[in-house]
Computed example of a mutant assay.
Amino acid sequence: MNDAQHRLGVSEVNLVVRHLRLDKITEANKDLILTEIDAIYGIDNVSFDDKTSVLNIAYDASRCNLDGIEEIIRQHGADVAHDWWTHFKESYYQFVDQNVKDNAVHEPWSCHKVPPGKK
């Protein structure tokens, strides 16, 4: 895949896919949550599996993060499930998201580079 196959603002290099089980989901708040998350700049895809109550999100981790998505979920009366596996994944996702964001702005260096001020 290349960047042309993704939404505007999504780079394949920084693309991550997340799966979170949600609690307190109704038909009314599910549609609001999906619509609001889908409108975030950097989101590539969002869907919800009714059978397992899992929110599936693909996004550019250098442009948006899981904390903002979880805030939207909570604003509409739902919440991320409170089981140990979901919390474990959530912590891991946050760690990886921060790494992606840090690496996106990191300036690479080389020991073969001429020092500043020398020509």
Rank of each mutant, 00 (worst) to 15 (best):
D3T: 05
R7F: 06
L8F: 11
G9A: 10
S11G: 12
R21G: 00
L22E: 06
K24R: 15
K24M: 13
T26C: 15
K30R: 14
K30I: 02
D31G: 05
L34G: 04
L34R: 04
I37P: 12
D38V: 00
Y41L: 01
Y41C: 01
D44Y: 00
N45W: 00
V46P: 06
S47K: 02
F48L: 02
D49C: 01
D50M: 06
D50G: 09
D50R: 08
K51M: 03
V54L: 01
V54R: 04
N56A: 02
A58E: 05
D60N: 13
C64N: 12
L66T: 08
L66W: 05
I69D: 11
E70M: 11
E71G: 14
I73Q: 06
H76Q: 02
A78D: 04
D79T: 07
V80T: 12
H82C: 06
D83E: 07
W84V: 03
T86P: 08
H87N: 13
H87M: 06
H87R: 12
H87I: 01
F88W: 14
S91H: 09
S91W: 10
Q94R: 15
N99I: 02
V100T: 06
K101R: 11
D102E: 09
N103L: 14
A104H: 12
V105C: 05
V105W: 07
P108F: 14
H112D: 10
V114D: 09
P115V: 08
P116S: 13
G117Q: 09
